[in-house]
Amino acid sequence: MKLSLTVNGRQESLDVEVGTSLLHVLREQLGLTGTKEGCAEGECGACTVLRDGKPIDSCIMAAHACEQSEITTIEVIGDSPDHPSELQNCLVESGGIQCGFCTPGFVMVLTALLKVNAAPTDAEIKHALAGNICRCTGYAQIIEAVIATAKTHQ
């Protein structure tokens, strides 16, 4: 079934089977592999994208339900290939990245958080990250990166 979708500011026209997840369309049909599948059931947050600016798990979002939405993926976070966002820089600097598979999902949620709350507390960051699992880092350096990002904005 036809689907037109706005992804990263581009209008895409696709033929997509009904019931297909947004994640599948992004990765397999649009080649946007930065968004990862970790569990396919909305538990790990690796597949987080922004739908009209709000974080959602694209693995459990029907692609056709996004017909009128603006989808933003990890590929357009940051200003250019040479200039990651401040948050991305802080994640690299703080050591908040290990295997990196969960990282795009964390970047998406934290980008959304910093948009609505420029200086989140430790508790607010942890609350926002409830739906994102990182198996490597134990989270501390990720949280530190968010606090460092907020400081650069002050």
């Binding site: 592999t33 991305q88 990282t103 795009p104």
Partner: peptide, 21 residues
């Protein structure tokens, strides 16, 4: 020193086996 693969990972550019075509 920041890790060498930090930027590609934080931008979603790092390719894992699941990303290969």
């Amino acid at each position: 020193y920041a890790r060498s693969d930090g930027v590609v990972k934080v931008r979603g550019e790092a390719l894992y086996t699941t990303d290969l075509q």
